[in-house]
Simulated assay, not measured.
Amino acid sequence: MGTYRPLFSITVEHAYFSGNNCKLLEFIPIASCTALLRNAGLLFKSSESGVAVYFDHDNIDILRLYAADNLTLTFKVFAKDPNFLRYTAPGAPPDQAILFFDNRTVTQDGTGKQLLHGGATVAEDSWADMAAEPLASILDRKDLFVKPVFIVQMNISADAQGLCSDQVDAAARKFFIRFGANQTFWNYYVLGELSKRAIYIADLDNAVQFKSIGNVTLPGQREALVLQSSVAIPMQEHSRHRLQLRESGNMGDKVLIKRLPNASIDQTFSEMINGKMENVSEIFVN
């Protein structure tokens, strides 16, 4: 066995997770990719946040022969978390679309990282039609029932600037996919006697304001006062917002609840706000 060196790596970053390190992804090479990896003498290693492919430098001529004949490595990527698309921007794709990335479109960010999409984060322009090429040839019947969250394709060329070249430095072999976090408006439903008092929500960090949007009747004829964030708040794996429920009074304000619960990904719905369909997280306070 010769000396294995990195051919390329793909790292997925995500603003939802602490440290921006995406979690719970599974990279699976399609059948033709598995055969190419074996025949070209490549090693494939994956993690929860990416994939890396290595080549045997002593047998680089074999790799270059395959690269001269349009060497394309394709991976289906699945999320182990069923909520992945709920907290991931740009959200769930249309029914007949999947996010698609390849290294023919590379954008450098301000730090020089190579992004496999056009903007600073993944956007709607990365959706691709499942019925059109190249997805039509990549996907099979079972993918219609359990769709990958995205497809990534790497094209390995044998030219002087290609990944088979000895002149390509380490940074040029590293590629990134960067997801932003979805955002939601936070709706606190304050029930019982508290809903009849002069209450408000204070953010100890002065980052978010809340406003009363009136009373609603919940199932069971329960009355609730709704306090809504003035802006949509990015979803986070471990939310760090420090919110208190307070009451205004003639003798000064009083803290009723020192630390309100933060929004949960499990209580997120769609609702019309200011004439536009938005994500809303519901939190109930008794």
Rank of each mutant, 00 (worst) to 15 (best):
M1V: 09
G2R: 04
G2K: 04
E13I: 08
N21R: 13
N21E: 11
C22S: 10
C22R: 02
K23A: 13
F27H: 04
P29Y: 10
I30L: 09
A40C: 07
A40W: 05
G41V: 11
L43Q: 10
V51E: 00
V53C: 08
I60S: 13
L63E: 06
L65F: 14
Y66V: 11
A67L: 10
L71P: 08
L73D: 05
T74Q: 06
T74W: 06
T74I: 14
F75T: 04
F78T: 02
K80I: 00
A89E: 15
D95W: 03
I98E: 02
N103E: 10
T105K: 07
T107R: 15
K113Y: 03
H117N: 09
A120R: 11
V122D: 03
E124D: 11
D125A: 04
S126L: 06
D129S: 07
A131Q: 14
A136P: 00
L139H: 06
L139C: 12
D140W: 09
K142D: 01
D143H: 10
D143Q: 12
V149K: 02
V149C: 07
I151L: 09
M154R: 02
M154V: 14
I156N: 09
L163R: 10
C164S: 11
C164N: 08
D166A: 12
Q167R: 10
V168T: 13
A171Q: 07
A171S: 01
R173T: 06
K174E: 10
F176L: 06
F185A: 08
L191R: 06
L191T: 11
G192C: 00
S195L: 00
K196L: 04
A198C: 00
I201P: 06
A202Y: 04
L204P: 00
V208N: 05
Q209I: 13
Q209E: 14
K211N: 08
K211R: 13
K211G: 11
S212Y: 03
N215I: 08
T217I: 09
T217G: 01
T217P: 00
L218G: 06
L225N: 01
S229Q: 13
S229G: 13
S230W: 03
A232V: 15
I233N: 05
I233W: 04
H241Q: 08
Q244M: 08
Q244W: 03
L245K: 03
R246E: 01
G249S: 04
G249Y: 01
D253G: 00
K254R: 10
K258V: 01
D266T: 07
Q267R: 08
Q267G: 02
F269A: 00
N274R: 15
N274V: 14
K276Q: 12
E278S: 08
E278T: 05
N279I: 07
I283E: 12
F284I: 13
